[in-house]
Write a protein that binds this DNA or RNA. Sequence first.
DNA 1: AATAAGCGTTAAAGAAAGTTAAAGCCTTAT
DNA 2: ATAAGGCTTTAACTTTCTTTAACGCTTATT
Lengths: 231, 231
Amino acid sequence: MEMKDINILLAEDDKNLGTVLKAYLDAKKFNTTLKVNGKEAYDEFIKGNYDFLILDVMMPVKDGFTLAAEIRETDKETPILFLTAKSLPEDKMKGFKLGADDYLTKPFSMEELLARIEAILRRTQAHKTPVNKEFFTIGKFSFDVTRHILSADGESQKLTSKEAELLKMLCANKNETLDRSEALKHIWHDDSYFNARSMDVYVTKLRKYLKSDPTIEILNVHGVGFKLITE
Amino acid sequence: MEMKDINILLAEDDKNLGTVLKAYLDAKKFNTTLKVNGKEAYDEFIKGNYDFLILDVMMPVKDGFTLAAEIRETDKETPILFLTAKSLPEDKMKGFKLGADDYLTKPFSMEELLARIEAILRRTQAHKTPVNKEFFTIGKFSFDVTRHILSADGESQKLTSKEAELLKMLCANKNETLDRSEALKHIWHDDSYFNARSMDVYVTKLRKYLKSDPTIEILNVHGVGFKLITE
DNA sequence: AATAAGCGTTAAAGAAAGTTAAAGCCTTAT
DNA sequence: ATAAGGCTTTAACTTTCTTTAACGCTTATT
């Protein structure tokens, strides 16, 4: 499965486990934020734009169950997976009653955790964006993401997979900076020097395609990435 | 949640466990059908309109993994929960890789099973569209999977088995990329260079069959696979 | 200002895919 | 047993897509 821009909020008070988990999930192309108690996690959840919550149950200041209950007061959608040493049946049932999607007891394998996260995301992410009807307007151009077609003035240009993916990411971040490393991780699956050069070549190609509309610009943000500018 | 219209297909060869589970689930307002092996369960799944599958892994005639794989060939939606005595990590991973939503090892509590089923249904029931697993519509074409017949405008084209299998996989992944290696492993049983070339030949054939509808497209995703695009 | 790192662009090399035709390989009928 | 026919694979050639390399320019750092 392609794990593009999934933001995971991980609440775990065991620093060791937390760090290891975050490293593992980030390596699997997620974007993980680690908080060490329920209160911090709640504050982070409120401001952030999270797609998945992994909550330890026993934490200082505010435990995972309380945290989940607070979150579910306003948010019924974001998936919750409890991660805990408590394996009592009553606890499990409490977790599910609070609206959890899964409940994993320690010790567990990272692979299983990943598999369970992906199983849940398969269900939730698919419906988030009404699948594959993606369409962007860039100045006088219209861009059919699924068909890889960029058209304007009655003319159509068929894009290659890489061109289309890059343009899609730029469009999704219209007028904001698209981090080079994000694009590389997502499209090239590896943030390396040579892939970065390859990306530069693609930026040039996209600029050529778009140059007939002078209001459009793919701006370089030195050392950071690129920004697609349109009004 | 009101459960009385939820149809569960339960495949379990242990008569005792099967009967007890069915009774429990029916008491919880589900509508449960019990089959004692993978083959019977598959036949039942094909004709029925099921919302949830509970599959034992070890069963005579056809095991649960094989059954799940067959079902997932044409149906990516219906939730699958594996119920098994096999608790080896590799088995769990295999289950999830096959597209399972959950994996519960025996012995388990009925309450936990119920909680897990409900957690999954919460995600899936909201947006479900019942589809016929043996029949696909592709633009103006209709494709009878079992009979290998592709028809449109009153004309029918009989497909060869390889053509039909490939088209089936493309349909099951409509508007998503079908990985080349997945198709090769599944249809050719070996992901090799020469089979890949053979697959290319079949893609050309399918494109010819489908070309009379310009809204249909089999798009190549370079280095990854193919994507069947329809409106 | 000197230096290094980052970017823009073009061209060429390399890898993957599109297509067509012919060769293999089964199955079935004679 | 052999020939015919349909299906699948192999082969060869063509086209397209992606990466690498090269060179010049720009931006940050000191």
